[in-house]
Design a protein around this nucleic acid. Sequence first.
DNA 1: CTTTGTGAAGCTCTTCACAGCT
DNA 2: AGCTGTGAAGAGCTTCACAAAG
Lengths: 214, 214
Amino acid sequence: MSIKEPHIIPEPAIRRLVQMANLLQRELAKGRDTISSSQIGKELGVEANTIRKDIKYLGGAGDAASGYNIARLTEKILKEFMLEKKIKACIVGLGRLGEALINYQLFKANNIEIVAAFDVNINKLETLITEVPLFPAYEMEEVIESKGIDVAILTVPIAEVDKTLQKLTKCGIKGILNYTGATLPHQTMEGIHIRNLDINCELNMLKVLLNKRI
Amino acid sequence: MSIKEPHIIPEPAIRRLVQMANLLQRELAKGRDTISSSQIGKELGVEANTIRKDIKYLGGAGDAASGYNIARLTEKILKEFMLEKKIKACIVGLGRLGEALINYQLFKANNIEIVAAFDVNINKLETLITEVPLFPAYEMEEVIESKGIDVAILTVPIAEVDKTLQKLTKCGIKGILNYTGATLPHQTMEGIHIRNLDINCELNMLKVLLNKRI
DNA sequence: CTTTGTGAAGCTCTTCACAGCT
DNA sequence: AGCTGTGAAGAGCTTCACAAAG
């Protein structure tokens, strides 16, 4: 309603909207064309109220009769967050996880292109079968700069995290998806955004829930 | 101070404490023996205040002179959340991610034992090299029940999620670590706890942060 | 009657500010 | 000085309750 909406969307809302976009695209693929906030809520495990508020942050897109038009709502979310913009990513560390991620199919569908991967072990670089260009770790800064890579997916052993992080902060990377067990701050002093994705932490959270029988 | 503390620890605090336990164990391995709330906070990317409140939920364990004794604090966290208790897990779906996770080293360190893995593709079961016993998907319910498996790590294709979930709810599983792109509610009607770990969602969150230049 | 949209209330977690200890 | 511990204040997000529309 104001002259210029300030676009301050709470982070939990952003997360749900991103998840929503994925859900909607799947529903769209099934041939469906409208959906209600309560149905979205059920799928995402949150209340319909919350879903409506989330969508309201985008200005609202619903119809009091039939709910939300899936195509239109999807479009609105993708545009708001520029999710269709392609970003270049690299994988740093080709252990089991790195190997698995290097050919992970769903990246493409989310407009993420893996344009390089790095490891200290030269053997790994020679034996790994992939279409992604592989480089020794010491070329990391140079390659990231020359290719204009936006995001690094960190899959090095936990002992290498600090050292790798220092290298990454010096070559213009803008974001890090931290897959190592180390918990890092959400933002470095250099303004690099970090997201932590810790399998063991999640498994331990599960453990706590099971043990406490909440 | 009360006669019986109710052990209501906020979930964000639990998560940080679990992360803290991991951090402390690494610091302990380096030979260090005390640490302050501000140092923990710096590592975990939160304020010292928050760390102290988190630890206070366990009754407090600090010394006004030297901070926290690492061994003692670690012990306290592990005991509070019963993190040393072993749990049995299985991997459902042996795509790239499942393959990578099946031999993932850090599970052992967190007292998680992978005792089975399942896939619909019989070829996969024959060609995959691992010490984990492999089973065809149709034996899933039977094996989970007979082995007393607590947790399932879901790595099936997104299209198979609903069907797999239905099977899992019928064999006494207590928790699910959802690695598929689908966002599931945190708890099923049957009381199964679910944690979502969505790579693409996190990458998209990164994207949003980069695009908005927050 | 079901749907969205929305101010207000409520709740949960974080931050502040400072007392108390070494 | 630097540390922990902690009530009080504050911020942020969710839920409520209901108006408005088809």
